[in-house]
Amino acid sequence: MTPQEIEELFIRSLDTFLTAKEQETLIHQLEKNPPLAKQLYGHRKIRESLKRKSPASFGYHFAEKLTARIENTGVIIERQIFTFFKKYQLLAAGVIVGLLVLNTLFSERVTIDATFGLDQSTSTETTPSDQIISFDFYKTLNTDL
């Protein structure tokens, strides 16, 4: 076995179970080559040094600071709005459909634009000529008054 193959097997032994044959081979190779065994010990030293010895933390009052941030930045309101629509999505959809139906009923033409309130309605009604009252500023202000 080459030193690289032995190193590979040694590293694998740190993360997974080796078969009996692999274990035997590794032990035999390390006994045969003490300088290599000493060199490979570095891998174990790295592992031991990296392993956490005490619980990690984000510092004092992390939870308090976090909840204050949530309360102050409107995350609660955003969540409540989301929850409301999620909880009452059928009702919300019903209200929207209802508004569209009303829009259609009160529009003059049934078109997609009218349904969504996008048409520009113009009045075509005119006043009959016999109902038009003339108004003369000169006569009204100077003669009649």
């Binding site: 619980p55 990690a56 933390s57 984000f58 992390f62 939870a63 909840t67």
Partner: peptide, 15 residues
């Protein structure tokens, strides 16, 4: 209640 959940899981997340 949420604060307690944060306290319980802070160390795992920080880790």
């Amino acid at each position: 209640a949420f604060r307690i959940l944060v306290d319980r899981n802070e160390s795992k997340v920080a880790g």
